Simulated scan of single mutants.
Amino acid sequence: MIDVAFKPVGPQLGKLIAEGSSDETEIPLLHTMDRTRIWVWVVYLLLVATAFLGNIKPF
Rank of each mutant, 00 (worst) to 15 (best):
M1R: 07
M1P: 02
D3L: 08
D3A: 12
V4R: 13
V4D: 10
A5N: 15
F6T: 07
F6K: 12
F6A: 15
K7G: 07
P8Q: 02
V9C: 10
G10T: 14
G10N: 15
G10M: 14
G10D: 14
P11S: 01
L13Q: 04
K15H: 02
L16K: 03
L16H: 01
I17C: 02
A18Y: 03
G20Y: 00
S21A: 11
S21T: 15
S22A: 08
S22F: 05
S22W: 06
D23T: 05
T25K: 13
T25Q: 07
E26A: 14
I27D: 13
I27R: 14
P28G: 03
L29R: 05
L29W: 06
L29E: 02
L29F: 03
L29C: 05
L30P: 01
L30C: 02
L30M: 13
L30E: 01
H31C: 06
H31E: 11
T32E: 00
M33K: 14
M33I: 15
D34K: 13
D34S: 10
R35V: 05
R35H: 08
T36F: 08
T36M: 15
R37G: 10
I38N: 07
I38A: 06
W39I: 06
W39A: 01
V40Y: 15
W41L: 07
V42M: 10
V42P: 04
V42H: 13
L46W: 08
L47V: 05
V48R: 12
V48M: 13
A49G: 06
T50E: 06
T50V: 02
A51C: 13
A51Q: 10
A51P: 00
F52V: 03
F52Y: 12
F52A: 02
L53K: 12
L53E: 14
L53V: 08
L53I: 08
L53Y: 13
K57W: 04
K57A: 04
